[in-house]
Amino acid sequence: MAPDVERAMRRPWQYWFEDGLAELALAAVFITIALAFYIETLLPPGPLPSLVGMLGPLVAVLGVGRLAGWAVQRVKARVTYPRTGYVAYRRERGAGRRLQKAALGAAVGALVGTVAALPALRAWVPAATGAIIGVAFLYGGYRLDLARFYLVAAFSMACGTLVSLARLNDSLSGAIYFAALSLALAISGACALAAYLRATEPLAEAEDHGP
């Protein structure tokens, strides 16, 4: 029987998400963003809350993102690779990668620009954020054939819309949306990790037997 080549080419990236660790790392990033928004609500009026609101997400994505990425590699080296093997990934370059970055930049730019031009739409920022993140998960789910990403996408969209409809203040809306999304990702990641650990076991020492 001829192998499904396209499916085989997708497998290594599915494998990256098979143990759920990447979702747990992403949950750490989102909970840090939520914390930044929450801290903003606690600060007295002045320039400080805006600064925290601007820098917090940046620190979360760049700082915590890098730290979480490092932690994922360490845990994979201890848990995943001894069970189901090691894969070194190629860094995606070229037009596809540039297109993805451009699409994300355009979506965020359009959101920020629209809110700046029409302050009345501020209440809908969580809904728009939920939709952007949801579309990213839909795309990931489709590309990698991962059904649980569709659930995260649906949750992100629904949660963003509900938070917008609740008409809370901006920072609190952000805090609630990102905390909820983080919780959803943590549950999704933990379930995937539990299923992975149940289905696999570490290989015995000195078991490789390559050619």
Partner: peptide, 15 residues
């Protein structure tokens, strides 16, 4: 096909 999208993979993974 499995090796095409990655830098490298070990024997255990391919197995």
């Amino acid at each position: 096909a499995l090796l095409y999208t990655v830098e490298s993979a070990d024997f255990t993974y391919l197995l």
